[in-house]
Design a protein around this nucleic acid. Structure first.
Lengths: 209, 209
DNA sequence: GAGAATTTGTGAATAATTTCGCAAATTCAG
DNA sequence: CTGAATTTGCGAAATTATTCACAAATTCTC
């Protein structure tokens, strides 16, 4: 790859991918950038430009064969195999994630769950045993897990994230409100704090009154 | 407001706001765009430009008085009063959100929880009674709630979202993987699907191997 | 089979965002 | 009190992202 694909383009691919999967589930075989764009509130040109970064997947006059485009996106997003995921923090949110059945069908297997609380360690969530966070590094290394979802209390977030890096984790989905300070070439971070997202909305909602 | 503030600027304000709150909690009184930027991995110039959209909050040579800047951001983000929130869907994620204690201190009160399941309707989550989703419109109208968090199964997402619009909801934080199609001037949408976020990361993680 | 209608991929134009660079204000060191 | 060091806010420049517009390929209509 000579010039890296812009991150903003990459961020749209999962949305295309999931929409195409829904279309396929509804029995549709082909689509066009126009149709996809209308469904997503994005311009057709943008979808074509985005996809053109990776190759030529469509056909003039016809559009895109959904199954083919799904396969291409699957490869591009490295979703042609499944990924193991660790959940750090078995509080309310961590538990909900560990219980959620929407990950596995999309190729994400919750493999490890950690917490600090002696009341939780050793108990089960579904068929997952909650592990002691002190064992984080050896357990993650042993399991070879590369992705972690961080659902610990804010105060612990940075320290736990530092441990995750030492354990060889390569991607952290951060649900805390603490912005993490980590070496950028080593770990891929995504901040998904619900409070920030609500505040982003209140900016606009307040304005309309 | 003549030219609207770019959304990308607005999206960064909650991060500044929360970081400043943390600094204040740690006893700090002033900061600079340089310090804030280093903490967040953002350039100092960008922070200054972002803030300059709303006014002049700093002082040359000194930087920013944290308490003052927090107050300003609180007003800008309309967080100078608290907001009531409805959670739609009392499955794993909905339950976790309803139980989560991180919202109230930041001014978001979970006021209503809805579900379809007769097994859940009438039962309690903490001191919140789960309501029948058939009562969505009258309950939300009566309570005057403006913000909803959507945690229903994918298949129901669009239909429920349409109801929310009819009920007068002005902001939806969408945790489903369904991209919602809603009138853009009426509702402010934020898509926060964990699967998409993981796929955004797998793009990069796969590349490094 | 001919002409109209679709639709892609892409170069060029436009628009949006970020970074640069610096005058002005302020603080700090001695 | 003086000179060095900070730091802001902002115009200008550079960079990045989106939209436009159209040739080329294909399908559709009759």
């Amino acid at each position: 790859m000579q010039t890296p694909i812009p991150d903003i383009v990459v961020s749209r691919l999962p949305v295309y991918f999931q929409t195409l999967q829904t279309m396929q589930a509804e029995g549709q075989h082909t689509t066009s950038s126009k149709e996809l764009g209308e469904k997503l509130g994005i311009s057709a040109a943008q979808i074509r430009k985005d996809l053109s970064q990776f190759g030529e997947f469509g056909k003039q006059g016809t559009g895109y064969i959904i199954s083919f485009l799904i396969d291409q996106l699957k490869t591009i997003l490295n979703m042609d195999h499944s990924w193991d995921v660790a959940v750090i923090g078995a509080g309310n949110l961590g538990k909900a994630i560990a219980h959620y059945h929407g990950f596995a069908p999309q190729g994400f297997n919750i493999k490890l769950v950690f917490d600090t609380s002696p009341d939780l360690i050793g108990t089960n969530i579904g068929d997952l045993n909650i592990l002691d966070i002190d064992e984080l590094i050896p357990c993650i290394k042993k399991a070879g897990v590369k992705i972690a979802m961080l659902t610990v209390p804010d105060a612990a977030a940075q320290a736990v994230a530092d441990e995750l890096v030492k354990a060889g984790i390569e991607g952290i989905l951060n649900y805390t409100s603490t912005p993490l300070n980590l070496p950028p070439r080593v770990v891929h971070l995504r901040h998904s704090d619900p409070v920030s997202q609500l505040q982003h909305m209140t900016y606009y909602i307040g304005k309309s009154k």
